[in-house]
Design a protein around this nucleic acid. Structure first.
Length: 693
DNA sequence: GAGCACTGC
């Protein structure tokens, strides 16, 4: 292919096998290939990490922190905790923890290790994720999400249960990974016996080392942190760059798919795009042009995958390729680390990703297309080398690749920090501005969040958590604004309704939009559940319909184009939030059941619910422009906002609203909106609005 | 007047 140029490190070079938990280190995967006759012990000894077993154990003995570098596919996630357990680190009732950024990873690895050890899951080996605690008194090795370990610090600030904590996939720099690193560094000062293992990609290892070495630099000259590199196991992936920069990567993608299809041996293709619109375009174009292929040629099956698809639609990509066809999977970033697809030999990488950013000046989040990092590019390329030697086509020049950031901006630098600040305060870290972050978030973002927490009355005027409100908001596993609404529901006598609304706001993708169904059919179906008061009350209707006449069934969701997975999750979340309300002594009351028998009672009840929502979301209020353009402006800062087209209130004439969130793409859109009366703002949040007016 | 990357408690 004349348009392509091999990368200078390309032929024969190996790329890390990205997600060793799915296949790479699995002894079962190995067993299925050629070592079926080996005992489990023999299989474990064949993994690349086994050669480093002694050295690893020596380092953990000697150093407080050990950084285990990259080269995934070596077995570190499943083997390292077992080595530690075998060496006695889990004796005397102590546990070994291993954190993962994603729930699926925690559960699947735990299952695999339990099988290797030959115990029931939840016995010697277990896992803990939100809504599922599969551990017992006997549990010695505990896999968990990073968010869950952070929750545990609120209960046991020194994490005394654990002798070793392994933070896996630290290079991903998830929000909770970053917070945990800061908190664990503090804990280490008080617990010299605690061992930390940070598993990271090569590029960040020294940053982690510098971070942990500063703990003791003042009086000792010896390092307390060591790095070890492990070799991985995966097939080589050739990397090809374009010779010239690409203007239209959607078109270039389609060309490349056909080039691969007509010139390369068999093997499926995985394409990385940024979002739904591009994916649909690529899939449609491929289908159309596929009909022009010669009659006797191999067929081509394009399939989309992104989070907004229903479970059934997502499942299609895992079905075996039809005889005589080549599968082309067109994906968002979901395929970079969350979903693993077997059979991929070719990867096409457009070089971009959609990222969420937080603007502290407006308090708005934006969703923008940005170039990926070198680490992401490497991760994407690695998806081609799981089955056999593969090829990755990067739709950018090698020069552009060299100019990419080494790794993505950590999540903590682009998030709303209000929840983080509350939780750090609850841990007794009063001066959050001086908290030891691996990479500190911008100071103005911290200050904006502190102001917001003060206006919610979660912090007092010297920045301490208020009692009980601030303390309760820190405990609640929801955003502080939503937490405030939940707590205020006592006053408005509508906790039953608010629980359902809060659960529905917390899950994503309540609606599914199958491509085969015409848009007006979808809209008509949705209107059956919609009410003029806005999205919150409509979500409540959907929740109630799902749990009563919908009988919690997948079939009902399918018929009405709702996402079954999302609604089921809402039911679990509601249950969890209900337990918190019970703990905070907030009575369960339903104003709709009490007053909803008559029309006027119903109107009054929904007013109460909307007032309750306003008592938490008063800072996110907007007023319609008088020109009838449908545009709004935030009441305090005059920022222009539009109604999101998915909202109940799209193309309806509301005057004053509060909104759950704003997503800024080409324009700023409010999502999940409720109609309010302006007097409620001065009544419920005079401190916030008094200088206006 | 017209749009929805991905996680986590």
């Amino acid at each position: 292919m004349a348009f392509w140029k091999p990368g200078t490190v390309a032929p024969g070079s190996t790329v890390d096998r990205d997600n060793e938990k799915e296949a790479g280190e699995s002894i079962m995967a190995v067993a299925n290939q050629s070592y079926r006759y080996l005992s489990i012990q023999q299989q474990r000894e064949r993994l690349p990490i086994f050669k480093s077993r002694k050295e690893l154990l020596y380092l953990v003995e000697k150093y407080q922190t050990v950084i285990v570098v990259g080269q995934t596919g070596c077995g570190k996630t499943t083997q390292l905790p077992q080595y530690l357990e075998e060496a006695g680190w889990a004796e005397e009732g102590r546990k070994i923890a291993c954190t993962q950024p994603r729930r699926v990873a925690a559960t699947t690895v735990a299952g695999r290790v339990a099988e290797e050890i030959g115990c029931n899951l939840g016995d010697k080996v277990g896992y803990t994720i939100r809504f599922e605690d599969v551990t017992s008194q006997n549990t010695r090795i505990k896999y968990m999400t990073d968010g869950m370990l952070f929750r545990e610090t609120l209960i046991d600030p020194l994490l005394m249960d654990y002798s070793v904590i392994m933070i896996d996939e630290a290079h991903e720099r998830s929000l909770y990974t970053d917070i945990l690193l800061g908190v664990l560094k503090k804990i280490q000062k008080k617990r010299p016996d605690l061992r930390l293992i940070i598993s990271s990609a090569t590029l960040d290892a020294e940053e982690f080392q510098d971070f942990f070495n500063t703990n003791t630099s003042k009086d000792k000259f010896k390092d307390t942190c060591s790095i070890i590199s492990l070799e991985g196991r995966m097939y080589p992936v050739d990397i090809l760059y374009t010779v010239e920069p690409v203007n239209d990567y959607v078109e270039k993608t389609i060309q490349t798919v056909f080039d691969i299809h007509t010139k390369e041996p068999e093997g499926d293709v995985l394409v990385f795009m940024t979002g739904r619109e591009e994916i649909d375009k690529v899939v449609n174009e491929i289908s159309e042009r596929a009909s022009t292929l010669p009659r006797n040629a191999l067929g081509i099956t394009p399939l989309p995958i992104y989070a907004g698809l229903s479970t059934e639609e997502q499942a299609q990509i895992f079905e075996p390729t039809q005889e005589g066809f080549r599968k082309v999977i067109v994906a968002t970033n979901i395929a970079e680390a969350s979903i693993t697809i077997d059979g991929v030999v070719y990867v096409i990488d457009c070089g971009f990703v959609k990222l969420r950013a937080y603007n502290p000046k407006t308090g708005m989040e934006s969703l923008t297309v940005a170039p990926i990092s070198k680490a992401s590019a490497k991760q994407r390329a690695g998806r081609a080398g799981r089955l056999k030697p593969g090829k990755t086509f990067r739709l950018y020049t090698e020069q552009s690749f060299m100019e990419l950031r080494d790794s993505s901006v950590p999540e903590i630098q682009r998030s709303n920090l209000a929840p983080v600040i509350l939780q750090l305060k609850a841990l007794g870290i009063d001066n959050v501005l001086r908290f030891n972050f691996l990479t500190p978030p911008p100071v103005e973002m911290m200050i904006r969040s502190l102001e917001l927490l003060y206006s919610l009355n979660a912090l007092d005027n010297v920045g301490r958590l208020t009692i009980p409100l601030g303390v309760q908001l820190a405990e609640f596993p929801v955003d502080p604004l939503l937490g405030k609404v939940l707590l205020a529901s006592a006053e408005f006598h509508c906790s039953e309704e608010i629980l359902s609304i809060a659960a529905m706001l917390t899950v994503q993708n309540v609606y599914v939009q199958p491509n085969r169904v015409p848009k007006d059919v979808l809209t008509d179906e949705r209107r059956k559940f919609w009410v003029e008061e806005g999205d919150h009350m409509s979500l409540l209707n959907i929740y109630n319909a799902f749990t009563t006449r919908g009988k919690l069934s997948g079939k009902w969701c399918h018929e009405h184009y709702f996402n079954f997975k999302a609604l089921s999750r809402a039911v679990s979340i509601r249950g969890q939030l209900k337990k918190y309300l019970a703990r905070f002594n907030i009575p369960l009351e339903s104003c709709l059941q009490r007053h909803g028998k008559t029309a006027t009672g119903r109107v009054e009840a929904t007013r109460q619910i909307r007032r309750c929502i306003t008592s938490g979301y008063f800072s996110q209020a907007a007023k319609a422009d008088v020109d009838g353009s449908g545009r709004f402006r935030t009441i305090r800062d005059n920022v222009v906002l539009n109604v999101h087209p998915s909202s109940v209130l799209f193309s309806r004439n509301a005057k004053y609203v509060v909104f759950h969130e704003v997503i800024e793409t080409n324009q700023a859109y409010m999502r999940d909106i409720t109609v309010i009366e302006p007097e409620w703002l001065s009544e419920l949040a005079p401190h916030f609005y008094e200088y206006k007016k």
